[in-house]
Design a protein around this nucleic acid. Sequence first.
RNA 1: CGGGGUGUAGCGUAGCCCGGUAUCGCGUCUGCUUUGGGAGCAGAAGGUCGUCAGUUCGAAUCUGGCCACCCCGACCA
Length: 491
Amino acid sequence: MSKGLPKRSENYSEWYNELVKRADLAENSAVRGCMVIKPYGYSIWEKMQRALDDMFKETGHTNAYFPLFVPKSLFEAEEKNAEGFAKECAVVTHYRLKSDPNNPGKLIVDPEAKLEEELIVRPTSEAIIWNTYKNWVQSHRDLPILINQWANVVRWEMRTRMFLRTAEFLWQEGHTAHATEKEAMDETKQMLDVYATFVEEWMSLPVIKGFKSANERFAGAEETLCIEAMMQDGKALQAGTSHFLGQNFAKAFDVKFQNKEGKLEHVWGTSWGVSTRLMGALIMAHSDDLGLVLPPKLAPFQVVIIPIPNKELEPDAFKIALKPVIDKLKSFGISVKYDDNENYKPGWKFAEYELKGVPIRMAIGMRDLQAGQIEVARRDTLTKETRPLEGVASYVRDLLDEIQSAIYQKAFKFRQENMFKIDTWAEFEAQIEKGGFLLCHWDGSSETEEKIKDLTKATIRCIPLDAVLEEGKCILTGNPSTKRVVFARAY
RNA sequence: CGGGGUGUAGCGUAGCCCGGUAUCGCGUCUGCUUUGGGAGCAGAAGGUCGUCAGUUCGAAUCUGGCCACCCCGACCA
């Protein structure tokens, strides 16, 4: 392992790419745009999954699984949805290979094994799911349907980046069906809140909740709600979306129910998802030039203990002295790695665990051992202090909580310092180059948004739910506006 | 998909212009000494030079196709 990462200040995207690889989160694979998520990275994803899944269950959802493939005729049923995703679909056309008669040992696609109907590898599952719901819903008593699925999807992106945009990615997609518009809208908002809570409390990352503008809305949705987070380079990252689908999919797939009055109605739908992109957010939001900084709640292990060997000591001296501490930590539910591998020197381990973002490192040498103490170092602040072994476990437990909130506070402060109320176009153009979220008035038209995007690469990240009503003039056109929206360059 | 760049041992690289037995560092293996911030010494292993084709007596080097990755655009519900 060579020393040192690229500096964030010098090349942010190179820093990100290197960090993903060096911290053992993921690597590129033999397949274009598809990554291998390595064990250390996957452990973080599993912790995210666990927390989210618990939250979905608490809000009444259950998991199910639908097919990877969507017959083309189903895929095209909801026109806007189909059109929105058409350009990035992988399509299965054949079901068999055979030996190449002209090239021994090689295979060719058997031209006689052409599918009657092409299968689309799901870029999202609304089509196959709503087609299924059609058979599940007859009466208002069959509603609501509250289902989530953990799955992989494929979107054939032109340009990919590990975690942020890969051709295949892992996600969850919730798909719900309701009897009333209000119930569906409440569900849409509820799941946005679940996402916001998760990202803020588990990932220690503050988000802005809001509506997407029409330009940025999910294809096939009536309304898209989202949470937007700020990365350390001042760019925005969409961390999750929750869509109010209206009756669009119910109409496209003919999903009707008989209401209490005996009348037939189309059901109301929602869908919502977060993906492995959250990993990208986690990495970019907190990490520094030494490596990852992980919030304790998502770290694969929260504490690493490094004994510093000394020939004058009994080989098991550290293990014996530390056993009560480790047992105590484990009894608090804290995950601990005791690293007494003698192939690496302490300095190497310090650097390695900093790279991997382990929240707390404890180191103990002969001097400490004799004094009955241990060094406790925080990854987030890089500060160290020496604590008595007695009571150190509960100190560490509290410190983990403190780190969890300190990381949040740091990210929150950064975001506050990089959000600007902008009222003139000149200021807008100047500030967008420096990054950050620009709170501006906007006249509400797609044309204006498009023009601003062409001029500055900035898009409307969201129209905040808590936007204050105030008189103002559109940043570009000067037309009247009633509230500020968030403009930023985005991942 | 357009413009630019890169591809040589597990990783990072020199060599390429000007064709002739492949360089260095990290890592790995063995041994000894070490261990409080990426250890030292000694020895060793490890290569279809991205891939396919062409030119040539001879190709990492020249030519062309393809593939992958990186940067800048376009694209990204």
